[in-house]
Amino acid sequence: MTMLFYLAGAVALISTISVTISTNVVHALVYLIISLLAVAVIFFVLGAPFAAMLEAIVYAGAIMVLFLFAMMMLNLGQATENEEKAWLRPQLWVGPGLLILVLLVQLVSVLVTQRVDVVPVEVGVHELSVLLFGPWLLAVELASMLLLAGLIAAYHLAKR
């Protein structure tokens, strides 16, 4: 299980970096789907099978397919890819990249001080739903309202 965690983590890292440096939108989307599936494997290893399933179904399935449909509607061609290559000049991303790297080093140096080994205990869908429809019921209702608002807003915005 520990090997699986590191393997999936490496896959997630490599595919996320590929998303960040890719110039073709559709290739980046496929890399992003791989990254999300790798994170789903990590969730499974960490004892969260319901979260893993939702990650695969909702994130990698629904949201990314929505992205792909929107890309098909936009129909971005070779010209956009060439533009993207011209925009990805090193002098544009070296400055912010270095500053963010400093922040990352700080974050990692704080995180490595707390050494705790996690023995994953599976928290299944039953315990999760007892909590969701008990103390977190208000959050579920608010999430449903948020989704409804998103639906109406997307309908109005994408209308001709």
Partner: peptide, 12 residues
């Protein structure tokens, strides 16, 4: 059950 270091998940 084998364990996973907590900080490695957070670093990822």
């Amino acid at each position: 059950m084998p364990s996973i270091p907590y900080e490695h998940g957070l670093i990822l």
